[in-house]
Design a protein around this nucleic acid. Structure first.
Lengths: 110, 110
DNA sequence: CTTTCATTTCAATGGTTCTTGAAATAAATT
DNA sequence: AATTTATTTCAAGAACCATTGAAATGAAAG
């Protein structure tokens, strides 16, 4: 379960289109994730800019990092993202039916 | 369906504990919503500070506002919040099963 | 042990966000 | 019309965020 401060921190990490692009790239890459360099290239950011955004995502808990030889491998932290989704649904929407249905079949409502 | 810039704007609106408290108050209030003054009182903010946060939530589309005599009535915009939840699930998590299950029975995974 | 490669950290800069209290607007009441 | 009530807007200041390029770190290879 997640408290407000943690949710706010994750929401902040998601409040930037560069960082959303990073997540899309990681989702597209699948279970192996991507290295910092691959991410930088895919989202069209300089290494230091990519690193800045990756730190924000990692500090908030949206992604995990793992060193692999010279490079750093990043993956989406689905457990943590699931907790955030639960927070959004329960705390921000009171478990509203219309919102909940978006998970079951997201074509029917959104 | 929601594009990245709209999602980022909504995520930014949710990235502040005062604004999360506003949403909790609105959810607790039910379908009638709350006036700006009631919200300010419930979250312990000055009128101008509450108004600042309400504008952020309203501009992002998290809540609707409607004038009612002298006061302004705010409500959660569940349609828009559902779209954001769908964005979080699909674009940020690739429809991941573990994340999706949080909506069906959020005790089982989070 | 020096070089190379991958990534992060740092300092400087410019931009955005939040808070506060005062002034302005908007709508109803007297 | 003047007053009261509800809310927003404004200006100033502090705090925080994002971008850049250069310097520093970490890990492997020659």
């Amino acid at each position: 379960m997640m408290e407000a401060i943690g949710a706010a921190t994750m929401f902040h990490a998601l409040s930037n289109t560069d960082r959303l692009a990073v997540l899309r790239a990681l989702v597209a890459a699948g279970p192996d994730g991507l290295s910092a360099g691959e991410i930088a290239e895919q989202v069209g950011a300089s290494p230091s800019r990519a690193s800045f955004h990756l730190s924000a995502l990692s500090d908030a808990g949206c992604v995990t990092r793992e060193r692999q030889a010279r490079s750093q491998r990043y993956r989406v932290d689905f457990e943590r993202m699931g907790q955030l989704l639960a927070y959004l649904l329960e705390d921000c929407c009171g478990g509203n039916e219309q919102v909940r249905n978006c998970c079951v079949s997201h074509k029917s409502c959104c």
